[in-house]
Design a protein around this nucleic acid. Structure first.
Lengths: 309, 309
DNA sequence: CGGGGGCGATAGGAATAGCCAATCGCGTCC
DNA sequence: GGACGCGATTGGCTATTCCTATCGCCCCCG
């Protein structure tokens, strides 16, 4: 048995296709087929069920694939640890960012990271929190920027900054004249929300105290991205809550939107950097956290220096 | 990089000696040396520090050894899972037993296990709880019989039986005439205890409400085994608490000891089978638990059928 | 119904990696 | 100062792994 064989098994299990798996592993298809077959013979267990068209993991093979994955991940961590022990700040960092942070943070982050982490290019992945966290656990990401409570278990987090929510309205909205507003001023039936899965949607619902809002026209208006949402607001379909960093870009852009700060210190979200607890390159992640904290614009306030669960 | 190489690394780290490690891995010493050297070159990290006499893991190597261990364990689990998926009850079970249970349970257990688990010979290891639990976590044991609260974390447990403590005295002790006794009847300064580390010692102290007894002659009498302890009691040095199953052997043996049951339903210990949560051969462990519950003599009462944390 | 294409298995030969026995170099200990 | 213990080195063999080319199978489509 060989680590490479296990890599083959994981790859076939993931892709469900010997040919594509072999390409992913940079070997020929016969090689991969042969090694899988050899392993199945060694173990006396058929891991995959091939019936001409599709490849599936057998019931008995599932446990084997799981253990193979563990072994492969451990080996990958070992290599990462070796590189990290030479220079933790050397080598790419795969960073996930949630969709309501990514577009606004990235322009500040990239130059700062290029300066602070010259040998660690950032490979950015933008997705929902619920997609990023599994990728972290599987070792497919080194760290992720999220805005929900830090998940406990095998993940750890560093607080980055607190970001206020502002009320975004069309220019002709009555609220747009105000210097500031309160949550209570918002008409829930007029509140536009992001699609399911975005933490910003849940936070807006939570702030407005309506876990099951879902009435009126807004129910049909679940924007797939914050940009779309703000376009809807500008077009007069309603109002929404936007994170502070999204305000600047839009407020300036031709005045099609108005941004009104909200009163109350709880009208914020805390943005955190999360990573796997036994990540080999902790030093790189910590440096990245420092970089983000330093690079974030003054409109968001850095969180207390350290806070990990 | 190869799983075998990682096995070599783990072995050298554990044994601190290339020659012994090579023997443990069933390869020649030059082979092992060569592979370790090759791996260190590949990784660009010196994992071991050799200075003629001793071999130590370097600071930078520690993380690498840890990851290597993870990978090796995962691979071992994979093989175990493969065998288990053919027949979970096939293959040896490495069973740890605490010292105050082992000598008395084993005679009942072995025949029953040979009947219920004919293809799973038991490899018994007798040691202190604090030694058995790490062995479980490291995958060097499949299960262990302990008598303390089930450790949470990555271990799981099945309740086996509740075992009463009896008061053991010399024949000429005043208490030996009684049909039963209470804890309060025991003179703490007269109580003999096992050496540190035995859970029975802690439980006896706990029951007698004296976490820091340690006075009088008994302070110098910390027996290394329950057998030694009972010999001391028979020789008139004091009294002790013994688990119920230890009573039978001694009470019969020539009347050199008296056993007095203790009143109160809390004067018991619960004996459990613990095992790693992601153990591949759960079915074998569960069958082993059933076997032990069935084989335990009537003097101990089987715990409620199922209880896992 | 019969050819084309996609997919995994098979065959044979070449490159590579791992292994062993023998030996070396270096320290330590008697 | 010689014997010994330990890890590193060398040279040659073997087993594994890999590749290209090809086969057999099944599905699809004309």
């Amino acid at each position: 048995m060989n680590l490479r064989d296990l890599q083959y098994v994981v790859s076939v299990a993931d892709l469900g296709h010997f040919g594509r798996a072999s390409a992913a592993c940079n070997v020929s298809q016969p090689t991969l087929s042969g090694q899988i077959l050899k392993l199945e013979n060694e173990l006396g267990v058929q891991v995959f069920e091939r019936d001409g068209r599709t490849v599936r993991v057998t019931e008995r093979g599932a446990a084997i694939v799981a253990h193979a994955r563990r072994a492969v991940n451990a080996a990958a961590d070992l290599i990462a640890a070796a590189r990290a022990s030479r220079d933790p700040l050397d080598g790419p960092i795969r960073l996930g960012v949630i969709a309501t942070v990514g577009p606004y943070l990235t322009p500040y982050l990239l130059p700062a990271a290029a300066r602070d982490l010259p040998k660690a290019p950032l490979l950015l992945v933008e997705d929902l929190t619920s997609h990023l966290l599994p990728l972290l656990s599987e070792g497919k990401l080194d760290a992720a920027v999220i805005a929900t409570d830090p998940p406990s278990d095998r993940l750890e987090s560093i607080d980055l900054y607190d970001e206020a929510f502002w009320l975004m309205t069309a220019p002709d909205d009555p609220l747009s004249r105000r210097k500031s507003a309160r949550i209570a001023d918002i008409d829930p039936t007029n509140l536009l929300l992001l699609a399911d899965g975005h933490c910003l949607r849940d936070q807006a619902l939570d702030l407005c105290g309506q876990p099951n809002l879902g009435g009126g026209a807004s129910a049909d208006m679940r924007a797939a991205s914050l940009e779309t949402l703000l376009h809807l607001v500008a077009a007069g379909f309603g109002v929404t809550l936007a994170p502070r960093m999204a305000v600047d870009t839009w407020d300036v852009n031709g005045g099609r939107l108005r941004a009104v700060p909200l009163e109350g210190k709880d009208v914020t979200r805390r943005v955190r950097l999360v990573f796997r607890r036994d990540m080999p390159r902790r030093a790189a992640v910590e440096e990245l956290a420092r970089t983000i904290r330093g690079a974030a614009p003054p409109c968001v306030s850095a969180s207390p220096p350290q806070a990990t669960p």
